[in-house]
Design a protein around this nucleic acid. Structure first.
Length: 541
RNA sequence: GUCCCGAUAGCUCAACGGAUAGAGCAUCAGCCUUCUAAGCUGAGGGUUAAAGGUUCGAAUCCUUUUCGGGACGCCA
């Protein structure tokens, strides 16, 4: 609808010359009396032209033909705002549009034919996913959903490393527990994985192999642990409706020579040098603060090198957009990766890194410091057990990605049935209930008398429905789902108010039909929005 | 010490540089013979951390300070 107003201004610029080349901005006023759309155009133009903003507003207003099918009236207010009041009939068209476009209503095609990759979670399989991983998982999956709405074909990717020191310690931890369970008195080191799940895995090995592994120095302990933990991780993610299409093992980069390749290229371009037995990357020549080591004096690469090689790999797969979802602890490392990739002549600007701040967990009024190694964590599974998958997803989505968030577990448990999630879902269930009754009484949606929808509650709903596509668009631009949550809460609120004021069944044939058409449209958008966020839209509650 | 985030109602969080800063939870007072009361209506609750600046206009942009989180490794 905004583009229609922008169009209008373009037409006006043919007669008012200071409008030439001017791009007006429109927003939806908070106060009802200020119309459906407002622009500060006159104030902006006042600077350029040196004219009084109210005078400019007057000239623009007089040039607009009112009332028309589109604009009912224009008012000038305050220092020079132009407030546009849209013809109510124009709003009701949205019901028909939603019906006609159906599944396509919440989709755009401006990224059609393009491919995107979203890498998220990417926790090494050393233990169960924690609540902290939950934020990463939910944000990543939702971003992927949003990108799909713009036409992107999206791959969801999980990057892991089963060869590093972490994993060796994991294997060792299992072995020690295995030996202990077999009755050996062994001290279990502090820096090993303390969790109970390690014992479970050890027990599994005893069940399967008895004591035959006591002298086994193969990777059987590590492999079993990895396999078992990965199964758990995938199962947890599945509970949240998350599945990755690609699991990328860091090892691949060594096996296929990517690491070697990458090193050679840096050397050939003079972007690396040797010092103190290590290989350094000349980040200072790529606009960064200081040089960093990419190969230790032991000959082992630092995490930086595979990270770079991995991103090169992703770019080589011809994605148009490569997104990484990282926690705040990676905030300083990714610029190095992008700079390096660009220095090698690849399109580093295709890589977008979304940093989410950490989740602070409060339990019994105290902050829980999470550590997988120390087995001091609340698992994502436990959280899902307590509040359910929908609440978990909504909770992480409803906060802007860059804000720190506090998660009070006691509160979450206590309030689980007074959560905003239920407010949204309840609106959907209520509509379903009405529609079931309508069906019984052979009431059908009618699209010929939509002008009857003129109660304030009805008009507000119609206007809100109009905003949905803009909201998705904004979520796609900002790569943040909060706006969708806020929107859905507003829509649900408007529906609940409509519901208490406007009866559907028994309001007379024509109004019944029009209102049925309206609630079908509301139901569609609610469900579509919930689906986009990865939540269910229950038909009964 | 340097750098990156953040600070908005009692709590958790919203608010393309716009007009009277909004929701949910919590508190208080009302509303079910009528499509689901997981709902609705109303009340109270704010110096938008502080101080300056930019301008017609600032929670939003700039500077400084305070507080919280995170990074500054030949850990990942």
């Amino acid at each position: 609808m905004k583009h229609k107003l922008i169009e209008l201004f373009r037409e006006l610029s043919e007669t008012i010359d200071y409008l030439k080349g001017f791009e007006p901005g429109f927003d939806i006023p908070k106060v009802e009396g200020h119309g459906d759309f407002a622009t500060n155009a006159a104030m902006m133009l006042a600077k350029k032209t040196g004219k009084n903003p109210r005078l400019i507003a007057e000239e623009i207003k007089n040039a607009i033909k009112t009332p028309s099918d589109f604009i009912e009236k224009v008012e000038i207010a305050g220092p020079g705002f132009l407030n546009f009041f849209i013809n109510p009939l124009y709003f009701s068209k949205i019901i028909v549009e939603i019906k006609d476009k159906n599944e396509k209503f919440g989709y755009f095609d401006f990224n059609k034919g393009k491919r995107a990759n979203v890498e998220f979670v990417s926790a090494n399989p050393t233990g169960p996913l924690t609540v902290g991983h939950g934020r990463n998982a939910v944000c990543g999956d939702t971003i992927a959903n949003i990108l799909e709405r713009t036409g992107f074909e999206v791959d969801r990717e999980y990057y892991f490393n089963n060869a590093g020191r972490q994993m060796r310690t994991l294997g060792n931890s299992v072995k020690l527990r295995y030996l202990q369970l077999l009755g050996n008195e062994i001290e279990f080191p502090d820096d090993h994985y303390q969790g109970e799940y390690i014992k479970d895995i050890a027990q599994k090995l005893i069940d399967r192999y008895g004591n035959s592994l006591v002298d086994d120095n193969s990777t059987v302990f590590k492999d079993t642990a990895e396999e078992s933990i990965f199964e758990e991780i995938k199962a947890t993610l599945l509970r949240l409706g998350i599945t990755h299409s690609i699991f990328f093992n860091e090892n691949t980069l060594y096996e296929d020579g990517s690491i070697e390749d990458c090193l050679n290229k840096f050397e050939a371009l003079g972007l690396s040098f040797k010092s103190e037995g290590a290989v350094w990357l000349k980040l200072s020549e790529m606009g960064k603060e200081k040089d960093k080591v990419i190969v230790k004096s032991t000959g082992e690469p630092t995490y930086r090198l595979p990270d770079i090689a991995y991103h090169i790999k992703k770019l080589e797969r011809k994605y148009d957009l490569v997104i990484d979802i990282f926690g705040a602890d990676h905030i300083d490392t990714y610029p190095d990766v992008i700079a390096s990739v660009s220095a090698l002549g690849l399109e580093g600007e295709k890589i977008k890194v979304l940093i989410h701040q950490f989740v602070t967990i409060l339990q019994n009024g105290e902050v829980v410091k999470m550590s997988t190694r120390k087995a001091n964590f609340i698992t994502l599974d436990e959280l899902i057990d307590w509040v359910g998958s929908d609440v978990v997803r909504y909770f992480f989505n409803m906060r802007s990605i860059q804000t720190h968030m506090n998660f009070d577990l006691d509160l979450a448990k206590k309030q689980s049935d007074e959560n905003p999630v239920f407010y949204l879902q309840y609106a959907h269930a209520r509509i379903c209930s009405i529609l079931r009754l309508a069906e019984e009484q052979s009431i059908k949606a009618g699209y010929t008398n939509l002008h009857l929808l003129n109660a304030p509650e009805e008009l507000k709903l119609l206007k809100k429905l109009h905003q949905y596509r803009d909201i998705i668009h904004r979520a796609a631009t900002t790569l943040d789902a909060v706006v969708i949550c806020t929107y859905l809460e507003e829509l649900a609120g408007l529906f609940h108010r409509f519901y208490t004021v406007c009866r559907i069944i028994g309001s007379g044939k024509e109004l019944e039909e029009a209102r049925t058409a309206l609630v079908i449209a509301v139901k569609f958008v609610l469900k579509d929005g919930l689906t986009l966020l990865g939540l269910t839209a229950p038909e009964r509650m």
